[in-house]
Write a protein that binds this DNA or RNA. Sequence first.
DNA 1: AATGCTGCCAACCGCTCCATC
DNA 2: GGATGGAGCGGTTGGCAGCAT
Length: 276
Amino acid sequence: MGRAPCCEKMGLRKGNWTHEEDQILISYIRKHGHANWRSLPKQAGLLRCGKSCRLRWINYLRPDIKRGNFTNEEEETIIKLHEMLGNRWSAIAAKLSGRTDNEIKNVWHTTLKKRLLKTNQLNSDTKNRVSKQKIKRSDSNSSSLTLSEPASSSDLSSVTVSHEQNNMDNNIYSSEDIESLETMPEIDASFWSEGITMDNEKPTMPSNSWTIISNELPHQYSSNSEETFQHSFGYASNFDDGMDFWYDVFIRSGESMELPEFQNFQEQTYLNVQVT
DNA sequence: AATGCTGCCAACCGCTCCATC
DNA sequence: GGATGGAGCGGTTGGCAGCAT
């Protein structure tokens, strides 16, 4: 199948569109529509190929185009849809009213891809440090802290933190440490509030155990499949050397979380979580 | 002030899909 | 069924603006 000849005829303009050309195109499409892009420029009196006219209209001149920066919600949606659909920019654009595939493709390549790579690199680096630290601590007793999930999103009072200590003297956590964790700021309704729900989509999770490290805002995931997850974060202060820290967890429905150890890094402190 | 670098975005290129003949 | 051409899509690029040196 040969490529459609385009912009090969002598005399056709290329490059940036002028205001006058825009006005001619808008005026023509308002009057006659754009049933045939190939014949449109000739009939409209434009020295452009039909392909160029179509692109200009779709990406810039259409009246329903939303201009301006992408909102956080739009960026999150793009990331989620890209996980599901890959580089199918037109399909992603169809889910975001007023945004074009070209615009989404640009924001992905210039902003979102880099951000994700950075996040993945951070996760990878921290996982390596966690693994090394686990080996170091393998011979010592450690405190076992359990965070139970609420029975339902409305039952916030059931969010508890409990601990079992076999040998406080040998433990790396002091009683003040444990106490500070138990006096975490009260979790309000928004903590467990509904976030993004993806029908027929199960979050991609490692099967056995994992470490979740993230600075993202909390989301609650649910699906029509067997398993559901709640992605949430908590907060504790004055722990260990006095730094504040966030914890960020995925909780599988019907399970509790064992929190075997805490990581305290220079710039940010994360709680390392494994599902038991 | 001049130059170089980087990021962003509009537009182009080349390919595939699909309708029509 | 094959050829043709229009439309649409994703990858790539050129040019501009802003920033750093």
